[in-house]
Computed example of a mutant assay.
Amino acid sequence: MPKKVVRESVALYDAKTPLSALVDRAAAGEEIVIMKSGYPMARLVPMEDTRYLLIPGQGRGLWKVTRTCDEPLPDSVLD
């Protein structure tokens, strides 16, 4: 059975001040729809995966920087 989603609509003007509280509620599992002029414009939903996409040191040893990396480029490349 699909998960039941409860949505609350909030006007953009009314969402400005309590935005931090709305984000906390979305992180807790609620779905909040931001409305502008009566039309839905955006959804605040909880993140499903909060792991970092990049892991520090993950590419260590995969490439090397040579001693000549600071030298000017040859004229053939600059043309």
Rank of each mutant, 00 (worst) to 15 (best):
K36E: 12
Q58A: 15
E71W: 10
L53V: 04
G29A: 12
G57W: 06
L78S: 08
D70W: 13
M41L: 10
R43S: 06
A11S: 15
T17E: 12
S76M: 13
M35L: 12
V77A: 09
T68Q: 11
L73R: 14
P2F: 09
D70V: 03
R60L: 10
A26D: 04
V6W: 01
L22R: 06
R43P: 01
M35F: 05
D49F: 10
M47Y: 06
L19D: 02
R7I: 00
D49A: 03
V45S: 05
P56S: 03
V23I: 14
G38P: 07
R67A: 14
K16I: 14
V6S: 00
L22G: 03
K3Q: 09
T17N: 04
T50H: 04
L19T: 01
V23P: 07
P72Q: 12
R67D: 12
P46T: 02
L44M: 11
G59R: 12
Y52W: 10
P18Y: 08
A28W: 04
M1N: 04
D75K: 15
S9W: 03
L22P: 02
T68W: 04
K64S: 08
R7F: 01
V23L: 15
P56V: 02
A27G: 10
L19M: 15
D49N: 15
L44R: 10
T68I: 05
L22E: 01
G57T: 11
P46R: 12
E48Y: 02
L12K: 11
I32W: 01
R67V: 08
W63F: 14
R43F: 11
R67T: 08
L73H: 01
V10A: 08
L78V: 07
P40G: 01
Y39S: 12
A26L: 09
W63K: 11
V45R: 08
A27C: 10
P18A: 09
R7E: 02
M47T: 02
P74L: 09
A26E: 02
D14L: 13
K16L: 14
G57S: 11
P72F: 08
L44S: 05
R25L: 08
D49H: 11
Q58F: 12
E30P: 01
T68G: 06
T17K: 13
A11F: 03
V10C: 03
T50R: 08
I55K: 05
L44T: 07
M47I: 08
I55R: 02
P74N: 12
E8L: 13
E30N: 03
A42Y: 06
D75Q: 15
V23F: 11
L54R: 13
V45A: 12
D70A: 14
D75W: 07
R7T: 01
R43A: 06
V23W: 11
G59H: 13
L54Q: 09
E48V: 07
I55C: 01
R60G: 05
R25W: 01
L73A: 14
D14A: 15
L73C: 05
D14F: 11
C69I: 05
K64F: 01
C69N: 06
L78A: 03
R25F: 00
A42E: 09
L62N: 07
A26I: 01
Y39W: 06
G61A: 08
W63H: 07
T17M: 10
L73Y: 04
V10K: 07
R51S: 14
A42F: 06
L12R: 10
R60V: 08
Q58G: 00
M1C: 05
L12P: 00
D75R: 15
E71T: 10
A21N: 14
L12H: 02
E30R: 09
